[in-house]
Design a protein around this nucleic acid. Structure first.
Lengths: 242, 242
DNA sequence: TTACATAATTTGTAAGGACATACAGAGGGG
DNA sequence: CCCCTCTGTATGTCCTTACAAATTATGTAA
């Protein structure tokens, strides 16, 4: 009865199967917060895996913040509130997940040489051609953000139709340039009258600013973005660990 | 000559020594970006460690974003720009690191029952007594942020003198309640005239808002904070991975 | 009863071996 | 000339075993 869900013929790694099993038990409450796990040796024995495999499964959950280990003591389930480290998502994904309906209006899309700011951020030569886009993001009927992005031509040839249907990050992902690392700077400013007009706010309204450079697994810069959010309608939520 | 820096009698783990060695070689340029490492077996052999140990060292650097591995191909050094995941630091630490001189003015410190907002954030019962503080943080002579914090009494008895000398996070750490996980929400607002007066800005000036709950390794909530930053003088920088 | 030494428990580190799997390039057949 | 297959190479997974180190609990002696 213990190892019902373990399948050694499956291509999904054993340690991952074990980790998933544990995670389920934690999430469905059969391993309540604060409870101690059996020790590694017994657990491994009972599940019919080796201790390194067991350890790897546990380590995976420890890194995700679901378990903590103490040498000489044991392994415990921690408070379920904070679980995931910061995720690398786009506004589009965030809106989808929260059940709102994202809509995008392409206000501008053209190929132009990179400005010094963009070139610096992307680590490319000044004047290299990039696709430059300005988009207005709606949640339902409400405008939410003005988004400027630059994408190098050799990363992805952006087309207006694609951008209207899906988020930039989805396009990057399906083109094989999966964003893996990013540097973000978050600040605040007051809306100019032009910005306010576009976003449906008045001049001086508080805006969140965010500039971001994202790289793929190979370390190639795939996107630079400079965005403005209506503070009255949006805020960033971060879960940090370590 | 290969294993000069490896010390098997040292208490610092072997895999970590190996990782540090590799990291140095990457940082000092003797392993340039894009170069491939020797394969794991040879590397392990040359350094006189086992392959699992070698793998663990490499994995450590892969997780930190310095290396990438591809099955069947090898391991490569990636673009050095993005390295560290988000760190859990306080404003005090940030200022220290950037060479500025943090100073703190305690405007208020008292023990009072938790409001519903604070109780909810800390996961404690409404009305439980917490230490509530209001501080003004300077960088040099310039006011930078108004900071409100609540710390449960059983976590740490806060004293005015201690807070004047060091940051809250240092105090938490030395009390053994090391912040391990946190949830932050970052937004923006316009300064009221009272806030502006304190921060040396005019009414309506853009402010960054940040509320945070932090937990220690055991999942116990150790701090709730609600802070206001002058956007003209401060912004958040985040490095994200995965 | 208290203080100190000792033992048991549990995770941390390390080695060595075996097989699986994905990728890239070489070679052969159409 | 192009496409397919085969093969070599490197990482991915998994096992068994052993010892080290930290913490807690136990037991003994003053």
């Amino acid at each position: 009865m213990p190892d019902v869900s373990l399948d050694r013929t499956s291509p999904v790694p054993l340690y991952y199967q074990v980790a998933t099993r544990l995670q389920q038990q934690i999430e469905d409450g059969s391993m309540p917060v604060g409870s101690r796990l059996e020790n590694e040796v017994e657990l491994a024995d009972r599940l019919g895996v080796s201790r390194p495999t067991m350890r790897r499964a546990i380590s995976y959950l420890v890194e995700r913040g679901m378990l903590i280990r103490k040498r000489g003591v044991g392994t415990q389930v921690v408070h379920p509130k904070v679980r995931r480290p910061v995720e690398l998502t786009s506004l589009y994904d965030d809106l989808l997940k929260s059940g709102q309906e994202p809509r995008t209006e392409i206000r501008e899309i053209e190929i132009r040489p990179a400005t010094d700011v963009v070139a610096e951020a992307l680590g490319i030569a000044f004047g290299t051609e990039v696709t430059w886009i300005e988009r207005l993001r709606y949640a339902g009927d409400e405008p939410l953000a003005i988004m400027h992005n630059a994408v190098p031509l050799d990363v992805l040839p952006l087309r207006r139709e694609d951008l209207e249907r899906s988020g930039l990050y989805d396009l990057l992902r399906s083109a094989g340039h999966i964003p893996r690392m990013a540097n973000q700077i978050v600040g605040a400013k007051n809306a100019t009258s032009a910005e306010g007009k576009i976003l449906g706010e008045s001049r001086g309204a508080p805006l969140l600013t965010m500039t971001r450079t994202a790289w793929d697994a190979g370390g190639k810069a795939v996107e630079y973005g400079s965005h403005l959010y209506r503070a009255s309608r949006y805020s960033f939520e971060l879960n940090l660990t370590s």
